[in-house]
Amino acid sequence: MKNTLDPPLAATPPDARPRRRPGFAGMLALGAWLLAGLSLLAYLAAAWNSDLFARYAPIYLSGLWTTIQLVAISFVVGALISVPVALGRGSKGFVQRDLSTAYVVLFRGTPFIAQLFLIYYGFGQFRDFFESIGLWRFFREPWYCAIFALALNTAAYQAEILRGAVASVPKGQWEGAKSLGLSRLTMLRKVILPQAAVVALRPYTNEVILMVKASAIVAIITVYDLLGETRRAYSRTFDFQTYLWAAILYLLIVELLRHATNFAERRLTRHLRR
């Protein structure tokens, strides 16, 4: 969407620009990155320890799997919660609107780490109450607390994405679909949602990427996700490469997600290309 609105870049159109040889600054900057990359490789090669790798590689993968599960489950649960919140935000009823607005402001206006602490340690204080309503079995487990906190958090962001995407579909589309005599469900499924999906795809992936990054915090409430395993490995070995491996894995997930979106976006917008 951004690209269709933007005028062509810079003073001369890109194709007319002569492909210049890199100047001094460019060579220096790229050279610096090259040097940094090479010294990282050199460091990892010098610090290579096959015992360490054999011991921690499977542990890292299980941590990675935990991170993926956590993000996937929370994303789906958050998506479900986001629907009523988004409806409430657009509702004409004061109560629904104010409640959902308060929800969105609360979860978007405070750090996730503080929300996680409040839910985990704060709720732990009210064990008797949660036991009496039968929810303690849920809040007892750090894993469920992590999912609960991440789902509530992402629901606030997803509600805004959903609202924006549906609002972006022109009114004429609703009217056109209605005049064709489509039922409300068919209308949503065949006309509105496909168009909203094109708009929402990128913000949704961005949200998944943000969740992958935010989920790294759950290590603090004893969940062994990728960063949790990393910190454990570091506290055993005091070897800095433990953090570098985690960084490489996180970058891989994020880049994979980003390229998958670009691909999906190209597919979804085939009909818009000339």
Binding site: L9, A10, R20, P22, A25, G26, M27, A29, L30, W33
Partner: peptide
Amino acid sequence: AKQSEDWALRLS
């Protein structure tokens, strides 16, 4: 740097 004509700078 990202708008530079110098591809090396952009890439960096």
